[in-house]
Amino acid sequence: MTPTDLVLAAVAAIFVDADVDAARALVAPDYIQHNVAVPTGADPILGFIPALKESGIALTTHRVITEGEMVVLHNTYDNAQALGAETLVAFDVFRVADGQVVEHWDNLQVPPAERVSGRSMTDGPTEVVDLEQTAANKALVEGFVKDVLQGGAPERITDYVSTETYLQHNPMVGDGLNGLGAALAAMAEAGQAMAYAETHIVVAEGNFVFAASEGTIGETPTAFFDLFRVENGLIVEHWDTVSEIPADMPHDNGKF
């Protein structure tokens, strides 16, 4: 199986088919877990499958982005009380090796009812195109993260983001550069300034580039998982999930 096929099969075994045996074959015994509520290793996941089935959890995968051994899924979990809420939007990131899933990172967020742009956290284009532009699009987003999100040269934002079309799926932010600026200013005024410190994972395929970063909102350690769509050499659309990084986790692997 390709890395994409492998990850989709493992996720289906766990969340759709509740097939413990299939999941056991696909998930490495020493699976490295970065979810902040689940112990590391395959056994905790396998042991949780019956409870997930009983809960009636429903998984919808909106986007799949694959680069090498890394696979990113943009997911919605409904009936997700077993994970902590009725509905959760998530980015699930997997690393595969030797025919098994060996590592997992995620970031989950409850979608609010009100959205500034009117868009949901998951709607919009899903098709991966422009595969020949993967390397260039990845470099573009890496530059945007360094210069704008991490504050290296924020005045260069128009080198990276379209001034004509910037569609926003963060529920707190409006469209366009004006919407982004207004949201950042409001957060700063409320004492909740957003700061990106380090980006740990970047995965690109065609017109989609995903980045997983850590930083702060105010004084709170925060994980930012961002997905960007690139068109004609500029970022034109953005999805994300944002969540607090807790001090205590049931493993020593950290959020990243």
Rank of each mutant, 00 (worst) to 15 (best):
M1Q: 05
T2V: 10
P3K: 14
T4M: 12
D5H: 09
D5N: 14
L6H: 09
L6R: 12
V7G: 01
V11H: 04
A13G: 02
I14T: 08
V16Q: 12
D19F: 03
V20A: 10
V20I: 15
D21Y: 00
A22I: 02
A22Y: 00
D30F: 02
D30W: 01
Y31Q: 02
Y31V: 01
Y31L: 07
A37V: 12
A37W: 05
V38S: 05
V38W: 05
P39Q: 03
P39V: 00
T40V: 06
G41A: 11
G41T: 06
P44R: 09
P44L: 09
L52A: 10
E54A: 15
G56Q: 10
G56W: 04
I57S: 12
L59A: 09
T60N: 15
H62R: 12
V64P: 00
L73S: 01
H74R: 06
N75F: 01
N75H: 06
A80M: 07
Q81G: 11
E86M: 07
T87N: 05
D92P: 00
D92N: 07
V93W: 04
R95G: 02
V96Q: 09
A97G: 04
A97I: 05
D98E: 14
G99S: 03
H104A: 03
Q109G: 00
V110M: 04
P112M: 14
A113C: 00
R115E: 01
G118E: 13
P125K: 09
D130G: 01
E132I: 12
A135G: 06
A135Q: 13
K138D: 14
L140G: 09
V141R: 06
G143P: 02
G143M: 09
V145G: 08
K146F: 05
L149P: 00
Q150G: 02
G152F: 11
G152H: 12
A153K: 15
E155F: 02
T158V: 14
Y160S: 07
V161E: 08
S162H: 06
T163P: 01
E164F: 00
L167D: 14
N170K: 08
P171R: 14
M172Y: 12
D175R: 07
L177K: 03
N178G: 15
G179F: 06
L180T: 07
L184T: 01
A185V: 08
E189K: 11
A190G: 10
G191E: 13
Q192I: 02
A197I: 11
T199M: 13
I201C: 11
V202M: 10
A204M: 09
A204H: 04
F208T: 10
A212P: 00
S213M: 11
G215D: 07
G218W: 03
E219L: 09
P221I: 09
P221A: 11
F224N: 10
F224E: 11
F228A: 08
V230S: 05
V230L: 08
E231G: 06
G233Q: 10
V236H: 05
D240K: 01
T241I: 04
S243T: 14
E244Y: 02
P246C: 14
P246E: 15
H251R: 01
H251T: 06
N253M: 11
